[in-house]
Design a protein around this nucleic acid. Structure first.
Lengths: 165, 165
DNA sequence: CATATAAGTCAATATGACTGACTTAACCGT
DNA sequence: ACGGTTAAGTCAGTCATATTGACTTATATG
């Protein structure tokens, strides 16, 4: 028996470890998006609507440009989705005070309610995983995930100062 | 100043922590798929082709049903993508020996080469993140990611026995 | 033999994304 | 005040990924 790959070659372990990470990302993302997708379908929306609702909820008064930079899609792609959300009363726009060319985006009450409904499933999934894994594992998770993200977007995640006491 | 949310309410910290996890997943997946997507575009392929190539490479002689169960898409959706890959000589099929209704899937040399090209970028990204984060963080990452995955698919990830010495 | 299963097919539709070209309004520096 | 730039939006065409639903073919299995 004694498999050459595992018994002798440390490069195989490395390869296996990296492949597992690829699959962890695939399966985690697949399952992480499945629940909200099912809710969205009831509204005739898709995942793109969720992203808009999520980030507008997270950063009220963000501009269209900000949103495009986060989503990394074209404005033509955003246009349909955002237009639908505005038409159906989930998102409102108002001109920027400093720069009146900007359209600052906000969620309506209806939008806030949908955002809450969509995100609470995801939060519950994460809360369970965090609880089961423990605080130390959570720190490791954050570290690795940050390392996977392009450098220019890491600044979105403030370093967590240890709780002073 | 002294923000009510951070200064007093521990539930806000919790909420913030969970939201950050949502965003870590979004940004990590976005950046993780961007590089292979660019390569795939040169072949006229999309992310769905990558998934098929990846999993067939990972599990040679897997059946179409196995693949459908992993990807969680309909066979009609898979059909086009798989058909293209077969037509263009990246994947081959042969009837199962035990059950001749099955079509066992394999990568051709060409398919293996493309798989390698696509996945090596992702492996490099993960290797860098793993190295920067350290072994302990990697363990935490694995624990949390596993917790995010639906229970019925966790068995795909064998527990890592500590290296005996 | 009857039923169930694995795979594939045809048709219609929705969603999310793209490129390219263009407009409108507002800002901003010289 | 003009001219260039930027923010946003629009029109048109295309492509990839996915869906539902109905059906066929071949093979397996009780």
């Amino acid at each position: 028996m004694s498999d050459l790959r595992t018994a002798i070659n440390p490069l195989f372990l490395r390869e296996e470890e990296l492949r597992q990470a690829i699959e962890l990302l695939f399966f985690a993302y697949r399952d992480f998006t499945a629940e909200p997708d099912a809710i969205l379908a009831e509204y005739g929306f898709g995942r793109a609507h969720h992203r808009v609702i999520y980030f507008v909820g997270r950063h009220p008064d963000m501009t269209v440009s900000d949103l495009l930079a986060i989503l990394r899609i074209t404005k033509q792609s955003l246009s349909r989705v955002l237009g639908q959300l505005v038409d159906e009363g989930f998102v409102t726009q108002r001109p920027g005070a400093r720069d009146r060319r900007q359209r600052l985006l906000q969620l309506t009450e209806k939008g806030i309610e949908l955002e809450r409904q969509l995100t609470e499933r995801q939060r519950a999934r994460i809360a369970r995983a965090y609880r089961d894994a423990g605080a130390e594992a959570v720190e490791g998770f954050r570290k690795v995930m940050l390392g996977l993200i392009d450098e220019d977007d890491r600044g979105r995640f403030p370093p967590r100062g240890g709780v002073r006491r």
